[in-house]
Each structure stands twice: as C-alpha cells, then as structure tokens.
Amino acid sequence: MKDRQRRVRADFLANRERILRTAAQLFGERGVDLPLDEIAVAAGVGSATLHRHFSGRVELVHSVLDAEAGRLATRAVELSSHGHPEQALRVWLLELVQFSTSFRGLAVLLAANDADTTLENRHHALTDACRLLLTSAQAAKRIRATIDASDLLKLAHGIAVASAGSPDVAGRLLDIVTDGLRVPPTTRSGH
C-alpha cells in the first residue's frame, strides 16, 4: 500500500512540475491568455489534472512566477561560485530582465485580480539572490559599495519595461547600467 501511495504522490508531483514547465514556456511564447486546455494538452495531462493542481489561470500564473523566482535564486548561487563576481551579477540581471519581459499580458491579468499574496516571498527571494551576487562583486572591489540590491532590482525592472522584450536592447541598456556600477579607476594625482 505504501509503495502505491508513493507512486501516486510521485506522479502527482511530476504532473505538477510538467504543467509548470509547460505553462512557463507557453506563457513566454504566447502570453498568459492562452486557453488552459492547451497547456494541459501540451503538458500531456488532462484538463481535470491541471485543475486539480491549479484552481485557475491566476493560481497557475502565480505558481509559474514562484517557480521562476526560485530558479533565479538558485541560479544566483550557481553563478556566485564561478569566480567572476561582476560578470555573474550581469548575467543574472540579464536573466532577470528576460524573465520580467517573458509573459505578455501578465500585468493586465494581475491588475484585474486580487493582490498577489506571494509577491512578498518572490521579492525577498530575488532581493536575496541579487544581494548575494552584488555583495560578492563589491567585496572584489568591482562594484561600488554604495549600490543597493533593491535599487538594482528597480533598474532591472526599468530595463525590462524599456526594452519591450528585445534581448538586444535589454543587453545594451544593461551594459550602460553595469558600466555605471563599476568602481571608477583610481587616478594618480598630478597626471
């Protein structure tokens, strides 16, 4: 009996993860307004299975956002171990910008519904991830000590809005920002 319960639980979790991965991909490709039945079909599950996991579109979107915030937090830890803190921070910020621009229709959907109760948790996870990389770059004296993680997140959001989903524009704007974050080269007096 316990083996069957474990298999059922494992199948339940596997279906949920498959739905989340598929939804994230399809939201990125087509926006958050696509029919939930299409997500179920693409995930290889029935509509009833999708609805057992998620009460509706808003809950599915929030779950995808939570999963993506968790992925970005994990990614920050991975990047922090590679020895190039300034580069790690830039790579992570670009991934954050790309994530922020990936779901067309998200702002409208969230604005039309009640406040997001998981927003604070997501914000803390992303702030902590940014702070990890920023602190490392500051300790290496590559980024000015006066820079704050919450300011960087606001800049990344601004870049996401300004780039309108164009990776090239996002990259250029991020280069401008990261140039401004660097510790200025010391100048010798008298020269």
Rank of each mutant, 00 (worst) to 15 (best):
M1H: 09
D3R: 13
R6W: 12
R9I: 04
D11V: 09
F12Y: 10
L13V: 02
A23S: 08
A24C: 05
E29Y: 02
R30Y: 15
R30W: 14
V32R: 13
D33C: 01
P35I: 02
D37K: 12
A42G: 08
A42W: 07
A43N: 04
A43V: 03
G44K: 11
G46P: 13
S47Q: 09
S47Y: 08
A48Y: 05
A48W: 02
A48D: 12
T49L: 14
R52H: 13
F54M: 02
G56Q: 03
R57D: 02
V58R: 09
E59P: 03
E59Q: 14
V61E: 10
H62S: 09
H62G: 03
S63P: 03
L65I: 12
A69Y: 00
G70M: 08
R71Q: 10
T74P: 02
V77A: 15
E78A: 15
E78Y: 11
L79H: 04
S80H: 10
H84A: 13
P85T: 01
P85M: 02
L89G: 05
L89C: 02
R90N: 01
V91M: 13
L93M: 11
L94N: 09
L96E: 01
L96S: 06
V97W: 10
Q98P: 00
Q98S: 09
T101M: 13
S102V: 03
L106Y: 04
A107R: 07
A107P: 00
V108C: 05
A111T: 10
N113K: 01
N113W: 04
D114M: 00
A115M: 04
A115C: 01
D116F: 00
T117A: 15
T118I: 05
E120S: 15
E120T: 14
H123R: 13
L126R: 14
C130R: 01
C130S: 11
T135W: 11
S136D: 07
S136M: 05
K141A: 10
I143M: 12
I143K: 03
A145Y: 10
A145Q: 13
T146D: 15
I147P: 04
I147D: 06
D148N: 10
D148Y: 06
D148F: 07
D148G: 07
S150E: 15
D151E: 12
D151P: 03
L155I: 13
H157T: 01
G158N: 10
G158D: 06
G158L: 06
I159M: 09
A160D: 03
S163Y: 09
S166R: 11
P167Q: 01
P167W: 00
V169F: 08
V169Y: 07
R172P: 03
R172D: 14
I176Q: 13
I176F: 12
V177F: 13
R182G: 15
V183L: 06
T186P: 04
T187R: 08
R188C: 01
R188H: 14
S189F: 11
G190L: 04
H191K: 13
H191C: 05
